[in-house]
């Protein structure tokens, strides 16, 4: 029998190792797997490379993970967030490396990584500082820059409903990076607001098929980053 459900977030992230690359879903707070991130802080792995579109806000979730000093590199498109000092302080003091990637190139690199494609050419960033040091080629008279596929050891993803096979559906724009990150990680760990019986999710409406998912944890009432920040919470 296939049963990917684990009882706690702590058990789900127990084997994240020092130096691992961890993709973390979410666009701002929408889709941010905050309970999994907090479990990862508690777990203590360090020297991590984190892939996320942003750099968190306040001192909870992703920002708290950065603040813990366990992240040595961030691969990111937009690390500037109103109301967060954590990333700017780390960056300006040279305590974190930043690889800045255009948002569409970031999602395509993850998609390519998940699809077994080592590199691809895109016109995005041609003629800008973000093409520096990268191979370029001309196809049909237009210049393109080569970008590498991106894979990870772990992905942390939030969804609204899952079953024990790891089939997932999401909530509105919280879907964002979840489905692509799930394909690109060796071990994909999901927190679901609800775990339903097999057969409940309409196969026509499943967004992430279970083959891409390794573990599922039920988190019935996930915290909202903005509410925690508004209350001045600092994790841990």
């Amino acid at each position: 029998m296939i049963d990917k459900e684990l009882p706690t977030a702590a058990e789900a992230v127990a084997d994240v190792f020092d130096g691992a690359t961890v993709m973390i879903g979410g666009f701002g707070e929408a889709g941010s797997p905050i309970e999994l991130i907090h479990a990862l802080i508690d777990q203590g792995a360090s020297g991590l490379t984190v892939v996320n579109n942003n750099a968190g806000s306040g001192e909870v979730g992703l920002a708290a993970l950065l603040k813990s000093g366990r992240v040595s590199k961030l691969i990111c498109s937009y690390p500037r967030t109103a109301g967060s000092r954590v990333f700017p302080d780390l960056y300006r003091s040279g305590r974190i490396e930043l690889e800045l990637v255009p948002q569409g190139t970031l999602s395509e690199r993850i998609r390519a990584g998940g699809a077994g494609i080592p590199a691809f050419f895109t016109p995005t960033a041609v003629g800008t500082p973000l093409q520096d040091g990268k191979e370029t080629r001309t196809f049909d008279g237009r210049d393109y820059v080569m970008e590498h596929g991106l894979t990870a050891d772990f992905a942390l993803v939030k969804c609204s409903r899952a079953d024990r096979h790891g089939n997932l559906v999401y909530n509105k724009t919280a879907r964002n990076f979840g489905p692509v990150m799930a394909t690109a990680a060796t071990t994909t760990i999901v927190q679901a607001s609800e775990i339903v019986d097999i057969g409940v999710l309409d196969p026509e409406a499943v967004v992430t098929p279970g083959i891409f998912v390794s573990r599922v944890v039920g988190v019935a009432e996930p915290a909202l980053e903005s509410e925690l920040v508004a209350r001045g919470v600092s994790y841990p």
Binding site: S77, Y78, P79, F87, P102, Q103, T124, P129
Partner: peptide
């Protein structure tokens, strides 16, 4: 040519988002 993501100031936190993808595509 369009410049809308960075002043190039060494003190700024670089952040590009989807702007380069939008203008290319």
């Amino acid at each position: 040519d369009l410049a809308n993501w960075s002043t190039g100031s060494p003190d700024a936190i670089p952040a590009v988002g989807g702007a380069m993808d939008l203008v290319a595509g």
